[in-house]
Amino acid sequence: MEASRFNVFGHIYELRREGGAWRALAVGNDGKLGPAGFEVPSFVEDGELEEFLFDLFHESATPTNGDVRRIVR
């Protein structure tokens, strides 16, 4: 299983590659994982995740949280 965490405009998500599909999880303030409420298509490659998340959530950008960053690989 391949997993990476991302800071998406101030929200933390973990994306796991399981079998050929992505599983998206929200990381809570307590570190617990829960459903993220969105799906990543299986054709999205690992190196495309930041761009995909930016495109999906760009309306959530603020002057202080204006980017998507991989925080754990």
Rank of each mutant, 00 (worst) to 15 (best):
residue 72 V to T: 13
residue 29 N to F: 15
residue 68 V to P: 00
residue 38 F to Y: 15
residue 47 G to E: 11
residue 26 A to L: 10
residue 35 P to Y: 13
residue 20 G to F: 11
residue 50 E to S: 03
residue 22 W to R: 03
residue 56 L to H: 14
residue 43 F to Q: 05
residue 16 R to G: 02
residue 8 V to Q: 09
residue 29 N to I: 12
residue 59 E to P: 02
residue 17 R to M: 07
residue 6 F to P: 00
residue 54 F to D: 00
residue 47 G to H: 10
residue 64 T to N: 11
residue 50 E to P: 02
residue 33 L to A: 03
residue 61 A to E: 08
residue 21 A to N: 15
residue 47 G to S: 09
residue 71 I to C: 08
residue 46 D to M: 05
residue 59 E to K: 15
residue 19 G to Q: 10
residue 55 D to N: 12
residue 62 T to D: 12
residue 14 E to F: 02
residue 61 A to Y: 10
residue 43 F to N: 05
residue 19 G to D: 13
residue 12 I to C: 13
residue 69 R to D: 12
residue 17 R to L: 04
residue 14 E to I: 01
residue 70 R to Q: 14
residue 39 E to P: 02
residue 23 R to W: 01
residue 69 R to V: 07
residue 1 M to G: 08
residue 20 G to K: 12
residue 48 E to H: 06
residue 15 L to Q: 00
residue 5 R to W: 15
residue 16 R to L: 05
residue 70 R to P: 07
residue 21 A to S: 15
residue 56 L to F: 15
residue 3 A to G: 07
residue 37 G to N: 05
residue 5 R to C: 11
residue 73 R to D: 14
residue 36 A to S: 14
residue 69 R to I: 06
residue 41 P to G: 12
residue 62 T to H: 13
residue 52 F to Y: 11
residue 58 H to E: 13
residue 31 G to I: 06
residue 60 S to H: 08
residue 52 F to W: 09
residue 57 F to G: 02
residue 62 T to R: 12
residue 53 L to N: 02
residue 35 P to R: 14
residue 31 G to T: 12
residue 5 R to D: 15
residue 20 G to Q: 13
residue 22 W to K: 03
residue 42 S to M: 04
residue 13 Y to C: 02
residue 48 E to T: 06
residue 41 P to V: 07
residue 50 E to L: 05
residue 71 I to T: 13
residue 26 A to Y: 05
residue 57 F to W: 12
residue 17 R to Y: 00
residue 26 A to Q: 08
residue 33 L to G: 00
residue 43 F to S: 04
residue 64 T to L: 10
residue 37 G to Q: 06
residue 15 L to Y: 00
residue 43 F to R: 06
residue 57 F to K: 04
residue 61 A to T: 04
residue 3 A to H: 01
residue 23 R to S: 01
residue 22 W to D: 01
residue 47 G to A: 11
residue 46 D to N: 09
residue 14 E to V: 01
residue 10 G to V: 13
residue 5 R to L: 13
residue 64 T to D: 09
residue 18 E to P: 00
residue 30 D to T: 13
residue 36 A to W: 01
residue 6 F to V: 02
residue 47 G to I: 06
residue 42 S to D: 04
residue 24 A to M: 05
residue 41 P to L: 12
residue 30 D to I: 13
residue 40 V to G: 00
residue 39 E to G: 04
residue 46 D to T: 05
residue 48 E to L: 05
residue 58 H to Q: 15
residue 43 F to L: 07
residue 7 N to C: 14
residue 44 V to A: 02
residue 55 D to E: 11
residue 3 A to C: 05
residue 55 D to P: 06
residue 30 D to M: 12
residue 7 N to R: 10
residue 69 R to C: 09
residue 6 F to Q: 01
residue 18 E to I: 02
residue 1 M to L: 09
residue 39 E to N: 10
residue 26 A to N: 10
residue 27 V to S: 04
residue 55 D to F: 09
residue 32 K to T: 13
residue 56 L to M: 12
residue 49 L to H: 03
residue 6 F to D: 02
residue 45 E to L: 06
residue 34 G to H: 08
residue 71 I to S: 09
residue 40 V to C: 02
residue 66 G to C: 08
residue 22 W to N: 01
residue 24 A to G: 09
residue 70 R to E: 09
residue 54 F to A: 06
residue 73 R to C: 14
residue 6 F to L: 06
residue 64 T to W: 07
residue 13 Y to E: 00
residue 65 N to W: 12
residue 33 L to V: 07
residue 68 V to K: 01
residue 63 P to H: 08
residue 32 K to A: 14
residue 26 A to T: 01
residue 9 F to C: 05
residue 25 L to P: 00
residue 33 L to N: 03
residue 34 G to D: 10
residue 27 V to R: 04
residue 37 G to L: 04
